[in-house]
């Protein structure tokens, strides 16, 4: 749809404001993979409660909005083998690289961090390549 980019921009501004708020108030980088990863592998230490609060709100707010307004859809593939493989790759890769779309992408690039820029270039390139292969080459997704 033609107006999708307006929602994209609006949502993007909200994402960026959330990251800005988290940095200026809590003094931390808003990276989804780092926050989730440190909670599950037990390295969050004393920052545990803070990160758990962030995560709980991140899950609960869209869930509530989707329930009230309806219409939210992920259109995730029904092929659970692909889902498991994709989930494992995302979990492993983001922890190895120490960041994902929010940490390296939004927070890193806006700071002109070399690591953030390099990571983003590589995950987008790999994503485009795998997409071309899996969809147009193998017809997998």
């Amino acid at each position: 749809m033609q107006i999708d980019w307006i929602y994209g921009l609006l949502g993007g501004l909200m994402i960026g404001s959330a990251a800005a708020f988290y940095l200026l108030v809590n003094g931390r980088i808003m990276g989804a993979s780092g926050i989730a990863g440190e909670l599950v592998d037990g390295t969050a230490g004393r920052t545990w409660a803070e990160k758990a609060s962030f995560l709980a709100a991140l899950v609960a707010t869209p869930a509530a909005l989707a329930w009230v307004f309806g219409g939210a859809q992920t259109h995730l593939t029904s092929n659970w083998v692909v889902v498991v493989i994709a989930g494992a790759l995302v979990g492993l890769g983001t922890r190895m690289a120490n960041g994902c779309t929010s940490g390296h992408g939004v927070c890193g690039i806006s700071r002109l961090s070399l690591r953030g820029i390099v990571a983003t270039v590589f995950y987008i390139m790999a994503g485009g390549l795998v997409m071309a292969l899996a969809r147009h080459g193998l017809g997998l997704i």
Binding site: T74, G87, V90, L92, G93, F122
Partner: peptide, 30 residues
């Protein structure tokens, strides 16, 4: 590790179309 990890992540991102943030945000209706 930054490069290898990012490539692994990118591959998974393309296969499912989800990265960690949206995967968590859509838990309620996914």
């Amino acid at each position: 590790k930054l490069v290898t990890g990012s490539v692994i992540f990118g591959a998974g991102w393309a296969l499912a179309g989800l990265c960690p943030g949206p995967a968590l945000a859509s838990a309620g209706f996914g």
